[in-house]
Design a protein around this nucleic acid. Structure first.
Length: 782
DNA sequence: ACCCTAGCGGTTTTT
DNA sequence: CCGCTAGGGT
């Protein structure tokens, strides 16, 4: 390793990188060089001879982050990084289970279910148990089961409190049994199996605890209960293995899917962290942007505490715009973005962020009509597409005929006259004999038996024909031989699906050839995998290649573990549209943060959760810190949502930003009815003890080296008349003070619906916020 | 076996 | 408002 790598680090980064073999907790602020610290530390440990490549484990949450780490490390180190255990929690668990499949009680060729496969599998269980799918909604049940697994609870460990829950536990047990029978594991199972194996097998535990001398965990604030427990088995507190945990409690935005920020506190305490290292020097954003981020997050109570600073200049104040409607908000964003682009900024360096996906629609249509290129992130990923899943199901049957999920998916697709009746009979036969659908085909006679037999012959024919072929040839042959290609060729709008199948063939080809892509999963040096040179019994790597599973099996695993790009089409310079969640970890020269309205952001439903407001605020913090040079905030007084026009007040987050860093492009006062600011502030103070909207003021004038936007159409539009406050047909206005006989004084937060359905969300002093039906509630304007 | 339509629900999401 | 799903009709 080049010693200049250390020379470029700031003192805190250097302290983190060169920390000894002791537990380390690194509080890494946004844009503080977190990935750099992680990779430089690994390089430093290796180059100093503190550890060999086999003694390092680095864990991330996403494949993208893992890949990034590997790439950067490869550039720093003179030798091959392949032997190192760098990957996602799930990816590493998978690797572990491939080596120890037997001890884990799995078949050698086990496959992985993705979330939609899991729901489908749960649904089959519910059907087989003759339960009502209204009462036991497959998706919800699958979610509950995953939750139990993340609590390390097997069916016998779950404490069911009512009959409904008892039944759910029964489904859980039946589901696990079904997975076992079919040789498949879901995502949560990957983690749980490894956890249980490490917990219960002392020899294995001792081996791995001795082996991994340094374990580095990225995004530690996102770990769930099971992941932390898992980690403690690999490197228990006080043991020889040193855990280096990097995270940012202020960027914890995944509590809703089980992340426990508390793991950071727990880690500090349980591992006896001697010194908490804070990376507060920010290398990304200008001063005004950081001032806003710091001020905002300061409103959170539960923090480890951290303040970002920068050596860069203040840059330009944030531009803030309050539009009369979502339509006009979109138009403003478009004009501003265009003007930035004309000023020399690439479109791909401009992000438009929103809290929920539904908000993208109006922005998209504005951009579409104006002919401005844009790209929306989110939606279906490559391996989640129906046609791709179909092809994968055929491929999985080649590997494992007992995979009932795949069997059911394609037994009659493309249509081959195997109807629901036939499938039902087959399922009954399978249930009666406790065997797989495939194995039960022989039990059926008559026409049904014949058509099923034909399907079996089709699969067996495919297997014979592809034996010994390259992965690409196998996939190609299956796409054709299954009839999928023909089916989409004859479909009038099957062109895109055909293209995706072509893409799948290409993906299969590059999976095998691309270094560090598929190879890691397939071929690993023997001593990197097992315990004292011993692999799982029966696991025999190919002598030449070191392959421990067939390329096909590896490819199928890859497909489940990495669902692929959100959108494959790159290329054209386009504006980047995404949710704030999707933007985490990314950065842009300019960011538009839209929909800053109470109810939307902070999101009304999120506020119901414990700590909901603080998580929403962290989300706002993440959004702000994505911007390098320019940040634009906007909101709409009225918005079309779920088919009705809704009226919202300004997000409280706007009031939590420093006035000096904001430049209001719409009048800050006057847009609302008179007295709104005071009433709203009072209501908040009385109702929730939170500070309200502060007085008016204008930010400083733009300066710095960034191109100033040219005057745009909207500027004339906004400069002249004060936008008239949108009025609801009940005669009420958002922000208006009202009196209710029972609840007293309040302020209207949201208005929606019309006529008999008209409703208002009103913030009352001590009674809190309430939804009232306007046809019933007696409200007096005050 | 497939197509159409009524009905429902609509925060965020990776593996 | 709009997209997905289940279930019924042909």
């Amino acid at each position: 390793m080049n010693s200049t790598l250390l020379a470029h680090l700031n003192p805190e980064q250097l302290a983190a990188v060169t920390l000894g073999a002791e537990p380390g907790l690194i509080l890494a602020g946004a844009g503080s060089g977190k990935t750099r610290v992680l990779t430089t530390r690994i390089a430093w440990l290796l180059s100093q001879g503190h550890v060999g490549p086999g003694g390092v484990m680095a864990v991330t949450f996403t494949n993208k982050a893992a890949k990034e780490m590997q790439t950067r490390l490869a550039a720093m180190l003179p030798y091959n990084v392949r032997g190192m255990w760098i990957g996602t929690f799930h990816g590493l668990c998978h690797r572990f289970l491939r080596a120890h499949w037997k001890a884990a009680g799995l078949p050698q060729g086990f496959q992985i279910l993705d979330s939609s496969d899991t729901v489908a599998a749960v649904k089959r269980v519910i059907k087989a148990m003759n339960l009502d799918e209204e009462r036991f909604i497959p998706k919800a049940v699958a979610h509950t089961i995953a939750h139990w697994k993340e609590d390390a609870a097997r069916p016998k460990d779950v404490l069911a409190r009512d009959p409904q829950e008892m039944k759910m536990v029964e489904i859980y047990a039946a589901y696990d049994a079904q997975c076992q029978r079919e040789g498949v594991v879901d995502f949560a199972e990957l983690m749980l199996r490894v956890y249980e194996l490490m917990r219960d097998d002392a020899a294995l535990r001792q081996h791995y605890q001795a082996r991994f001398q340094h374990i580095l965990v990225d995004e530690f604030q996102d770990t769930n209960k099971l992941q932390y427990a898992w980690l403690k088995l690999f490197a228990p507190p006080g043991g020889r293995g040193a855990v280096f945990a990097v995270g940012d409690d202020d960027q914890s935005i995944y509590a809703f899917r089980g992340a426990q920020v508390g793991n950071m506190h727990a880690f500090e305490r349980e591992y006896g962290v001697r010194r908490l290292i804070k990376l507060e020097q920010n290398y990304r954003s200008c001063g005004h942007i950081l001032d806003c981020a710091n001020h905002l997050i300061d409103h959170n109570q539960k923090r480890l505490g951290k303040t970002l600073r920068t050596d860069a200049g203040q840059g330009e104040p944030l531009r803030v715009f309050e539009a009369p409607s979502d339509f006009e908000e979109a138009r403003w964003v478009l004009e501003e973005a265009q003007s930035l682009h004309r000023g020399g900024l690439a479109r791909a360096e401009i992000a438009i962020l929103y809290r929920s996906n539904a908000q993208s629609r109006v922005i998209e249509s504005a951009l579409f009509n104006a002919g401005i290129p844009y790209r929306v992130y989110g939606g279906l990923r490559f391996f989640e597409r129906a046609e791709v899943k179909h092809a994968l199901a055929y491929l999985r049957l080649l590997e494992n005929v007992n995979d009932d999920t795949s069997f059911l998916r394609v037994v009659n697709f493309p249509a081959r006259a195997i109807g629901a009746r036939t499938v039902e009979q087959l399922q009954d036969a399978a249930k009666a004999s406790g065997r797989s659908l495939w194995q039960s085909v022989s039990a059926l006679s008559g026409r049904a038996g014949v058509s099923l037999q034909k399907f079996i012959e089709l699969i067996e024919g495919l297997r014979r024909a592809t034996e010994g072929q390259t992965l690409r040839a196998i996939v190609e042959h299956v796409v054709e031989g299954s009839g999928l290609a023909a089916h989409y060729r004859s479909d009038k709008d099957g062109a895109e699906r055909l293209e995706n199948l072509e893409e799948l063939i290409t993906a299969a080809e590059s999976f095998v050839t691309q270094e560090g892509f598929g190879k890691d999963a397939v071929a690993l040096p023997v001593d990197e995998l097992g315990v004292n040179g011993q692999l799982g019994p029966g696991l025999t790597p190919d002598a030449d290649t070191g392959e421990i599973m067939s390329p096909l099996a590896a490819f199928l695993t890859h497909a489940s573990l990495e669902s692929g790009e959100n959108q494959a089409i790159a290329g054209a310079d386009a504006l980047q549209l995404m949710t704030i969640h999707a933007a985490k970890g990314l950065e842009f020269d300019a960011v538009f943060l839209t929909g800053l309205e109470e109810g939307l952001f902070p999101n009304e439903r999120a506020l119901q959760d414990f700590d909901g407001l603080e998580e929403e605020r962290r989300l706002m913090y993440v959004a702000i810190t994505r911007a390098r040079k320019r940040l634009h905030l906007s909101l709409a007084q009225s918005r079309m949502l779920h088919g009705q026009t809704r009226y919202h007040v300004r997000s409280r987050f706007l009031a939590e930003l420093p006035e000096a860093s904001l430049k209001w492009l719409s009048p800050k006062q006057g847009g609302f009815g008179s007295g709104f600011e005071r009433d709203y502030a009072n209501a908040w103070q009385r109702g929730s003890g939170l500070s309200g909207v502060v007085g008016a003021g204008r930010g400083g004038e733009a300066r710095g080296g960034w191109p100033a936007p040219k005057p745009a159409a909207w500027q004339q539009a906004v400069a002249a008349p004060v936008p008239k406050k949108a009025e609801h047909d009940s005669g009420l206005r958002v922000g208006q003070a009202v009196f209710h006989n029972k609840f007293g004084e309040g302020v209207v937060l949201t208005l929606e619906g019309a006529g008999a359905d008209a409703r208002a969300h009103i913030q009352f002093g001590r009674h809190g916020a309430k939804w009232l039906a306007l046809s019933v509630a007696k409200l007096t304007p005050i």
